[in-house]
């Protein structure tokens, strides 16, 4: 009796809630830590970046208009969906060189991170907002609002690293274009399958796989992107991107060496929040 031939998955991009191939028709081979072929990942192009930005921009007002409670529920739903696929992700992470224990720890931490951020959705405004005691007969308050469309260069930590940069960006109402880890892009696309089945509106997260140095400059210079997370960029790429980002004054989160296992804090959320202050006279 012959062993059943497995049905392999085609790893594609994730744009606007759909899974298209790169419009360029390109792909690149992804190998495991030992050099064994795992799959061909789509190699996204500048045009794919532009399509992703269009999808993210289109989705942004609606996503921001959801109640924070609803966004929190959806993030929690992502955690639930991920929990159901623990084994799948553990296997996939082993492909990028992790031991079974390490892979399991990483998957569990990623699930817990979604849960942690889900709980933030209806609290961040209470922590960062203020009622301002101005010296006059005015009611004055400040609230955080999403920056808009954020470009993210994800770090190489293929699941926890990705979740750690993605969750804080979308939780507050931003939409995103993510360049996945170049050497280990496959878990990002599998995560997209989770996102696509978690009631997350299409376009809130758009994931591109491909060559970082090819795609990052297009993200950094795109005039309809409002913020840029350079966590996954090396020093030279980060400097180039930051310079390009100056053209429309993107908010830039520079690469930092923070231990992803510790309490992430609120800095990743506040990096892509604007503060709006509203004044109104008080009188009869």
């Amino acid at each position: 009796m012959t062993e059943r031939l497995s049905v392999r998955k085609t790893y594609k991009l994730f744009i606007g809630g759909a899974f298209p191939r790169s419009e360029s028709g390109r792909s690149y081979a992804v190998n495991d830590a030992k050099g064994t072929f795992l799959a061909n990942a789509a190699r996204a192009s500048r045009k794919d970046v532009r399509d992703a930005v269009v999808a993210a921009r289109k989705a942004q007002p609606g996503w921001a208009a959801r109640t924070p409670y609803n966004r929190g529920q959806i993030l929690y739903r992502i955690a639930e969906m991920l929990e159901g696929r623990r084994d799948q992700f553990t296997d996939e992470l082993r492909g990028s060189g992790l031991t079974k224990t390490a892979a399991r720890t990483e998957v569990d931490a990623a699930i817990d991170r979604w849960v942690w951020y889900a709980g933030w959705a209806d609290k961040i405004a209470q922590v960062t907002g203020t009622a301002n005691p101005v010296a006059g007969p005015y009611f004055n308050f400040s609230t955080p609002e999403p920056t808009g469309v954020i470009g993210i260069l994800a770090p190489d930590g293929p699941l926890l690293g990705l979740v750690s940069v993605l969750a804080p960006a979308i939780l507050t109402g931003n939409t995103t274009i993510v360049i996945a880890s170049e050497p280990a892009p496959l878990p990002a696309i599998t995560l997209a399958e989770v996102l696509a089945t978690s009631d997350l509106p299409g376009g809130v997260v758009n994931i591109l796989t491909g060559h970082r140095t090819e795609l990052a400059p297009w993200i950094a210079s795109h005039m309809d992107i409002n913020g840029l997370d350079l966590t996954g960029a090396d020093e030279d790429l980060a400097t180039d991107c930051e310079q390009a980002a100056a053209e429309n004054l993107k908010r830039v989160l520079s690469p930092t060496t923070n231990d992803r296992a510790t309490d992430p804090g609120i800095a990743r959320m506040t990096a892509f929040l604007e503060t709006k202050t509203v004044w109104h006279p008080v009188g009869i």
Partner: peptide, 11 residues
């Protein structure tokens, strides 16, 4: 219903 108001306590 106002404009150009400023205050040190107001971001």
């Amino acid at each position: 219903n106002t404009f150009n108001k400023f205050d040190p306590a107001s971001p």
